[in-house]
Design a protein around this nucleic acid. Structure first.
Lengths: 361, 361
DNA sequence: TTGAAAGCGCTAACAG
DNA sequence: CTGTTAGCGCTTTCAA
């Protein structure tokens, strides 16, 4: 019947061993508010007597108290979670940015939630709605298509959720972007090659993989012009996707024997480590020795760059740092009521010289 | 002064545009409870008249209502989030498991939170405490050390949080594990090599990188014995870490000229794609042609396997599927009040034959 | 078929 | 220094 002696009738929410502030308060003999005060770590001395503070802290520890983040979030109206949306969550670049973001997030008591964007035509609207449902304090966006970006803008704007785009080239004037200094990196690599005596330099990228690739190609052309180095059209291999089956033939066609030796590039810059790897192996299959006959520079510095044959000289992108910066910005917004400015942070990039580059023949 | 006309004095929690159920209720002219009923999608027909239901749904859409997950979580005592703890969040394997887990999680209205475990000596206790603070519905654990595992056990046991260990060899009798069928994969690879005429087969792994490596080495030895193939001690290269600087010398020492040809292995199985890549390049540097003179099989099937030179024949681990299974199990626990059994799911592994293996000379 | 009401565990005013 | 009092937005009985 109702009205039993039993104290615990709750709605089923009492998970095993879940101690509440009231439990502690009861035991210590103070009010729950005081416990809250102490446990949230406000300035000591103020409000609570030191001895009381100690007893509360002690009891909390004894009882194995774990604060309830959901309750805290609801009560304070803040969520302490950052959303991370990307289509390429399974790739090293994404994972490393996430780790970076995670680092600064957790230092500040925040956490990162990965948002679903799978399949070829993910339900963006639903995914972004979840961001609002979770009342995330900010969102990290990576490698989104323009239509998805627009949807995201609408959702976040309505709820004043700050966004940080990472490693995304299209210039957005309404949101923050954290990008790597691709131009700087390319310049470093180019200077490295030039110092090695290279003049005939080619570029290989996959245009449809990401807008980044196209941008890097443009940057390359730009830089070559700046250094007064001519670039025959056929030296620029703009394939579609980063797949061996499609990059290989392109490289093969350019490097295949049957043309005068001095019409060949002696070095390649690429838009990615993986492309550099295919380039190296295609060249080798054609009888080139890398780096003696052909120098190749990658872009990214993935783990596999160290294991490539030969170890890949590459432009290192600071993935972790990009994630860190983005998270830091979001946290600033959350705390300073900072309006999501259209700013942009560019993280320096550097050249890691390994064994895939050598003096020109 | 106080007592102004102003209606909105709230605690600052009223984020822009945040419509509540009460707002909808007021507009439609029903109670907030009814709105809750409709919006949580209970069986239609029951409780609410269809016309009312429509009006509520419509109004919610018009107002751009987004349910408040924190409130829902607190009220219902469930959190709808799965924690993901790992020391290797930046690696492809981890990222891919996370994607898989994400997939099934989001299909069920759950989401995944990455938990912090950075640096060389992460604060496990703090990290795991956060799991409880978030009242996660379950935790996915990957690549933890034994002491961390023990800490995790204590934390999750107290709060009855189910755990699923992924890709982790130490047999745990108190928790669920989802692992890949390494033995099956190794067997497939071995049969492939044997069919190609190989007898002298070596193994390369890095013991201290992960307990997985050691296990694979044991499995390899086991299988070789089963097939009646002798394995000279020096054929098993158990280096410390997966680093070129340390794997390379080992392979070099074994393969270096100066010993009778028939004492060399003609093929290698490895505990990882990266190790396979170093093996191939070291061999090549010594004048071996891969695969003509030496066959090499990787383990994992990372993206870079396709880009290796030559494209790597490898034992593919179903990372995404491991994540999916683990998440599925956790959700089952959450719903069925299923006690975290000591079960184990093993996901089949398969062999991807590319170009790094060929008939024995 | 609907509404009223009681919390969930916590934060934050405010009053002593 | 400390307790009281309101909520936060939702779920969930229980009554009507």
């Amino acid at each position: 019947m109702r009205g039993t002696i039993n104290e615990k009738i709750g709605s089923g929410g009492e998970r095993a061993g879940m101690v509440t502030m009231s439990d502690i308060a009861r035991r210590v003999g103070v009010s729950q508010a005081t416990v809250s005060y102490v446990l949230s770590g406000r300035q000591s001395g103020v409000r609570v007597r030191d001895e009381m503070r100690q007893r509360i802290l002690q009891t909390a520890a004894d009882l194995g108290y774990r604060r309830n983040d959901m309750a805290r979030a609801m009560s304070s109206g803040k969520s302490y979670v950052l959303g991370f949306v990307t289509r390429i969550a399974g790739q090293e670049s994404s994972a490393r940015m996430m780790v970076g973001a995670q680092e600064v997030a957790s230092e500040n008591g925040y956490s990162i939630q990965l948002m679903p964007l799978h399949g070829k035509s993910p339900d963006y609207a639903a995914a972004f709605a979840r961001l609002a449902e979770q009342r995330v304090a900010g969102v990290l966006a990576l490698n989104l298509k323009v239509d998805a970006i627009e949807l995201l803008r609408q959702e976040t704007e309505r709820f004043e959720i700050p966004i940080a785009f990472m490693d995304d080239p299209p210039p957005l004037d309404w949101a923050m972007r954290v990008i790597s200094d691709d131009r700087g990196g390319l310049r470093l690599a180019l200077e490295h090659l030039i110092a090695l005596g290279h003049h005939r330099i080619g570029f290989v990228s996959a245009q449809r993989e990401s807008p980044l690739a196209e941008q890097r190609r443009a940057l390359f052309l730009d830089l070559m012009a700046e250094y007064g180095l001519p670039v025959p059209n056929e030296f620029v291999l703009a394939t579609d996707w980063v797949k061996p089956e499609i990059v290989e033939p392109a490289v093969h066609a350019l490097l295949a024997p049957g043309r005068p030796r001095e019409t060949y590039p002696t070095a390649f810059l690429t838009a990615g480590d993986l492309m550099a790897m295919v380039t190296m192996r295609t060249a080798r299959a054609l009888g080139y020795r890398v780096p003696q006959d052909l120098s190749v520079v990658g872009f990214a510095d993935f783990i596999s760059a160290t294991f490539a044959d030969p170890p890949l000289t590459t432009i290192a992108q600071p993935f972790e740092e990009i994630g860190r910066c983005a998270a830091r910005y979001l946290l600033d917004c959350a705390h300073a009521t900072n309006p999501g400015s259209g700013a942009e942070i560019v993280i320096p990039t550097y050249l890691v010289v390994r064994a895939s580059t050598a003096p020109a023949v």
